[in-house]
Amino acid sequence: MKGPSSKDSLDISVANYEDVILARQKARELMQSMGFSLLAQTRMVTAVSELARNMVVHAGRGQMSVNSVEKLNQKGIECIFQDKGPGIQNIDQALRQGFSTSNSLGLGLGGAKKLCAEFDIQTTVGKGTRVTIREWKTR
């Protein structure tokens, strides 16, 4: 999938819960500077929190990149989460409400999908997972 062209880009390596906070802050900073509404910020940052923590919990560590992107006349933010973890066996099951392999609520991945405008997940068992989320500025 070819993404829209990106301008600013920032990579963060996420290996523990403190890094998750940092990841959230970076996403929030960029959204603030782009003038996203507080509601959009909260939604996106919550999704970032879920996905970044998923990398720590399931893969041990991973990379997040935050980019500002553009399509047609719209500006947006894109976050890519890439890990080299065990991958997801059954994506439909993983996205379902209440399904969890880690004794959590089982709402994070599916919730993140509902929280942002675009959600794309690619995973290979044994190789890793890549999740891309985007949010566009409404005007």
Binding site: T42, R43, T46, L107, G111, K114, L115
Partner: peptide, 13 residues
């Protein structure tokens, strides 16, 4: 707050 309420509903909590 409003934004937290909306986020929690979307998350399915």
């Amino acid at each position: 707050r409003a934004r937290i309420s909306q986020t929690l509903v979307q998350l399915g909590v």
